[in-house]
Design a protein around this nucleic acid. Structure first.
Length: 189
DNA sequence: CTTAGGATCGCCT
DNA sequence: GGCGATCCTAAGC
């Protein structure tokens, strides 16, 4: 049977629960990555979500099994990485928005053509470029290479606020961040 | 510090 | 034909 609990997180829970629990978890892709400091939750009954209008070829893996990757092309240019939640067929996920770089910094700098640590993973598109995430990773299980998830330390303070870059459901506070982290894409108010 | 525009492509109306 | 779950650069205040 498929693995749906990784790094102590049960991915069959609602996306907003998983999004909060993912703060502090370390994610690696081929050994390159860092600690998650910013996430956003998207659910099926959510006008801002890709899943809202039902399954399409693009969002198919969002309706696949939980604890798998959903990677999509944003603005025709960037890749964005999501972790699928709930049961197969539901259509929910968590967008990984920012990491605190911990492993493979030189690799990230080369891929991103940037030196400053904070510029490597401070946004969903940047993070995918830094970790080398592309469409090839779409639908892959998070429990197996190239992915690796490591539990975070318990008791981290998590802050919440409205999601970024959307034009619907702007009042839903489903953006989560590690309190005080300087590696988030934008400060929390 | 805030805002505006361009790059670029797959999906939806 | 329009518009993004973005990013970067440039210009304005």
């Amino acid at each position: 049977m498929a693995i749906s609990t990784i790094a102590g997180i049960d991915f069959t829970q609602p996306a907003e629960i998983v999004a909060r629990q993912l703060i502090g978890v370390t994610v690696l892709v081929n050994g390159v990555g860092g600690r998650i400091v910013e996430t956003e939750a998207y659910d099926r009954e959510d006008p801002a979500s890709h899943a809202f209008s039902g399954p399409t070829e693009r969002n198919a893996s969002m309706f696949g099994p939980p604890a798998h990757a959903y990677v999509y092309r944003s603005y025709g240019i960037h890749w964005c990485l999501n972790f699928v939640c709930r049961e197969e067929g539901h259509g929910a996920g968590v967008l990984i928005r920012a990491l605190e770089p911990l492993a493979g910094l030189d690799e990230m700098r080369r891929r991103r053509d940037a030196d400053d640590e904070w510029l490597l993973c401070s946004g969903p598109g940047k993070l995918c470029q830094a970790l080398g995430v592309t469409r090839a990773n779409n639908g892959m299980p998070l429990s197996q290479p190239p992915f690796e998830l490591l539990p975070g330390s318990p008791g981290l303070e998590v802050v919440a606020g409205p999601r970024i870059g959307i034009s619907k459901a702007m009042d839903v506070p489903w953006r989560f961040g590690l309190a005080g982290s300087r590696f988030v894409s934008r400060p929390f108010r």
